[in-house]
Amino acid sequence: MMTGMQRLTAAINGTLADRIPVFCNLLDQGARELGLPLEEYYRSGELVAEAQLRMRAKYGYDCLWSLFYVGKEAELLGCSRMIYAKDGPPNVGEMIIKKYDDIARLQVPDDIASHPAFAEELKCLRILKAEAGGRYPICAYLTASMTMPSLLMGMEKWLQMLMMGPHDLRDELLAKCSDFFRKQIAAYRAAGADVLVYSNPFGSTDVIPRRFFDELSLPWMERDLGPGGTAGVVYYCGSARFNKVIDAVIRRLGIGVYYLSPMDDIAEGKRLVAGRGLTCGVINDIMLLHWSATEIRAEVKRMIAAGKPGGKFLFGTLVMPYNIPEENIRTMLEAAYEFGRFETP
């Protein structure tokens, strides 16, 4: 049987595989897997690694995640308070930038790898690498400079600054976030992450007008990714659609994997990528909370039928809420394995 890495490599190269790669992000579910409250679970890189390895083996999907929760990046920049829920991801509990003067005080850590807030994630990455490196791609999650300020000052204040200025402070903040991104992606690569999910809702024209995308998003993305290159980078705009910018992103940035929104048209996305990279069809996994097995299978079948012909396609999930019944996770994955199978010649 092929490994997840072999399936991913085959999809990238357009060579033969048993089925399409299936990527699944079960994050908070790791706590349930180990019978722990979320706050206790996320305190330990060993626990997160153990749960990720266990869940991958249990469900059979093709990747491993080193991501704890999205707010973790704010901790690296000085946020000391996360607010935990019992059935969902923690929220950033303290905005580091409360007023514009705070931008000048924002410090980008010199060395991410030795930062105390990175220690547990680093432990997790090392365990994943030691246990499954080379067999299953290890995924890391990074927030683009254009989006990072939302975690530092809140989306509301960031959008206000982005649209209305002051532009000198906006650019100062973006430069710091971009410097942080460059260090962070280098740290993840050094620690063994294979897949770097580059999260940027501001890379979608659902969020900002095309003019802002061209004049701000693209140049800042170029700055983020310039020094380290785009190897292993996945373009992802959260739940926002981005089919309209795929061609520009390929031409300007050369990113090789496109993790669509569940609202994007998969066939159109694949047509726009046009063999220049991988296209990932992403399921609206919020519906897994209550869809029947029949509905889940029908949706997975529809998505894979739209994306699989011609290969260079993978199946993925979006937020995977904590309360999705385990049987629905299994139904989705088994349908993806079944409908994603390639016929042997």
Binding site: L159, Q160, L162, M163, M164, T205, D206, V207, I208, P209, F212, K244
Partner: peptide, 13 residues
């Protein structure tokens, strides 16, 4: 017609 979140925000603002 492809109205963006930023346009919603600015219209309201």
């Amino acid at each position: 017609q492809g109205v963006t979140l930023a346009q919603h925000f600015m219209a309201a603002q």
